[in-house]
Design a protein around this nucleic acid. Structure first.
Length: 341
RNA sequence: GGCGCAGUAGCCAAGUGGUAAGGCAAUGGUCUGCAACACCAGUAUGCACCGGUUCAAAUCCGGUCUGCGCCU
């Protein structure tokens, strides 16, 4: 890490500094699945007197413990955790909701004089909080979305895509017709906000974070990451993942639910429904999880101002922690220590 | 030893004279209310090897090697 940004300082550094100081601190620790975030997060939270907010689209759900690789209570070592086990698996969850809940948690944490640490692998959720993306336009009315979904089903994705091109040419160029979900959202947004979503996205992309933040991405050698993923899937199975999924299924969980789109749940649900053998399901789960890790990495690569931590460059977690603390002080997320060399 | 069948990318595989389909994997990317979602883009100057026929061969002919099966 260097401080190259100090080299070319525009005039307004003073006001920039003053503003910077008013900003509240936020630490982000993320990385691809199975990189080893959980253990490190506890050490970090203890070191900075922080509280952890899970940035994970699946760990919010109760009863989804093994498959979502949820931290166990005894592993928390007294560090407070938020946004874990707060929803039932049949409830809807999405970025906008996450953002609102996370912000509420952060306020409480600052009030207690502690630092919020966002820990989890859902890059989109982290982005929504870090840049405080605007999600307010929605009326909550799902009927238009349902209608669009029906059109896609009956008339095909091209018809929908042409509808989008008619109102928002830019978005239509950016979103492939086959990406029905995004096409639908763009249409929905245009209807509700009266402007193209491309314009909205453009605007939101310019945002600067309202927080004094550090964004850590814990990564490790690709081959090793993949073998850890496969090993972890096997461990999950041994711990009773199949029973967990069966219990959810018995409670009425179906593949249509957001929660059941989680890795491990959709594949095993498929097996329990008799669509494939257990072996096939496990193979697909491993493959899908590898794909997921890869996509996560692609996401983090394009995020601005990210501190990559390459696992194999450090002897142990303690060394990583030390390095992180240095960065946090250098960036003013943590106060500088007096008399430090 | 003889006969037959096969050998095309990391894997599966189409192509049987006209200039290498497709799928999976791997890789890179997109993402601003389903994001553990959804989606996009590449990837064999070369078809086991050597030689021949032909304007033209993965495709035809001869030989070699390897694998599989059958026979003695």
């Amino acid at each position: 890490m260097n401080n190259g940004s100090e080299k070319h300082n525009p005039e307004g550094i003073k006001t920039g500094f003053a503003k910077e100081r008013e900003k509240k601190p936020l630490i982000i620790l993320t990385g691809p699945t199975a990189a080893g975030k959980t253990a490190l997060s506890i050490a970090l939270a203890k070191a900075v007197d922080g509280e952890i907010i899970s940035a994970d689209s699946m760990q919010v759900y109760r009863g989804m413990d093994i498959g979502s690789a949820k931290i166990r209570p005894e592993e928390m070592q007294g560090v407070p955790h938020h946004l874990i086990d707060v929803l039932e698996p049949d409830e809807e969850f999405h970025v906008a909701r996450f953002q609102q809940m996370a912000k509420a948690c952060m306020e409480e944490i600052w009030e207690r004089g502690k630092i919020p640490i966002l820990v989890g692998g859902t890059g989109f959720y982290i982005q929504a909080v870090l840049y405080d993306i605007d999600f307010t336009e929605n009326s909550g009315d799902m009927s238009y979305r349902r209608k669009l979904e029906q059109i896609a089903r009956e008339s095909g994705p091209d018809v929908l895509h042409r509808m989008l091109a008619a109102v928002d040419e830019r978005s239509a160029e950016q979103i492939p017709a086959n990406n029905v979900k995004r096409v639908i959202r763009a249409l929905e947004y245009f209807r509700e906000a009266g402007e193209p979503i491309s314009a909205h996205n453009e605007r939101e992309r310019q945002r600067l974070s309202p927080y004094r933040a550090a964004y850590f991405v814990l990564n490790r050698d690709r081959a090793e990451l993949y073998s850890r993923i496969e090993r972890r899937v096997d461990e999950m199975l041994q711990e009773g993942l199949l029973d967990e999924v069966r219990a959810l299924r018995d409670r009425g969980c179906t593949r249509g639910m957001v929660s059941m789109q989680g890795l491990g749940y959709k594949e095993l649900l498929d097996h329990l429904d008799g669509n494939c053998t257990l072996e096939e399901a496990v193979c697909r789960l491993k493959r899908d999880t590898r794909h997921f890790a890869k996509r996560q990495l692609t996401w983090f690569r394009r995020e601005r101002d990210v501190c990559w931590i390459q696992r194999e460059e450090f002897p142990d977690d303690a060394a990583i922690l030390k390095h992180m603390l240095e960065i946090l002080r250098a960036r003013g997320v943590l106060p500088k220590q007096n008399g430090e060399p």
